[in-house]
């Protein structure tokens, strides 16, 4: 292992520090030290949906060990977690719970879509109970393609998230709390409460079309 202390990105590049003081003294900005702390203690939610969750467990286990990134504290409670790794296929039946969990997370919060299914539906996209990508409902920060992404691919994705955090400022993060997302309702199909008007319009038109088709068929028969 190298003995030189790694530059964790804490030091502000604007200031030069003499060689003999490196590793002892750091000059930085408030934003930088704040982000440095945040990105090295990202607590993911202990939350797995499908196949990708097994790779997430492997990432947490001895061989890949994301404790090296300060992420080992997987919290079963959304209130204590910073990042939600959506690991696996999102189904309509599970969606209300996922949205609720997201709403319960404390700001600042991040969502990582792990794998093809969470990003865009994946091979199961055509299924009647599958949500074609969690980004239809939640704001996603990083997408990790793959089916499933290998543990190294997941770590790469989480490093991308760290990079993203590095670029944020305190003002940005605490400027406005993130919006609460209305919880979808399980009706005849999944319904977004914001779309009720659209749904009513659609079903009315559909009924009209069907009635017209039926009348036509009757006329043809007669």
């Amino acid at each position: 292992m190298s003995t030189k202390p790694k530059d964790e990105g804490l030091n502000s590049p604007k200031y030069e520090i003499p060689e003999d003081l490196q590793g002892t003294v750091t000059i930085t900005t408030l934003d930088r030290i704040y982000n440095w702390g945040r990105r090295n203690s990202l607590w993911p939610m202990m939350f797995g949906l499908a196949c990708c969750a097994i790779e997430m467990i492997c990432t947490a286990a001895a061989r890949f060990d994301f404790a090296r990134f300060g992420m080992e504290v997987m919290r079963p409670s959304p209130r204590q977690s910073d990042v939600m790794i959506v690991a696996g296929t999102v189904t309509k039946k599970m969606l209300p719970q996922i949205v609720r969990l997201y709403n319960q997370m404390a700001d600042p919060k991040y969502v990582v879509a792990m794998g093809a299914c969470a990003s865009g539906g994946g091979p199961f996209k055509e299924g009647y109970n599958v949500v074609a990508g969690i980004d239809k409902y939640l704001p996603v920060d990083v997408y990790i393609p793959g089916c499933p992404p290998t543990p190294q691919a997941l770590i790469y994705g989480l490093m991308k998230l760290q990079e993203k955090i590095d670029k944020q400022t305190i003002k940005e993060v605490y400027g406005q709390p993130s919006e609460m997302i209305p919880i979808p309702v399980l009706g005849p199909d999944i319904m977004d409460p914001r779309e009720y008007d659209k749904i009513r319009e659609y079903t009315r038109q559909k009924a009209e079309q069907e009635a017209a088709a039926a009348a036509e068929a009757e006329a043809a028969q007669a």
Binding site: P188, Y202, T203
Partner: peptide, 23 residues
Amino acid sequence: RAEDRNPFGKNVDYPAGFDPETW
């Protein structure tokens, strides 16, 4: 993308005459 061809842009469909308000 399959969702581009759906009026809701999502993987959803509703039966004819369905009204979410009275449901």
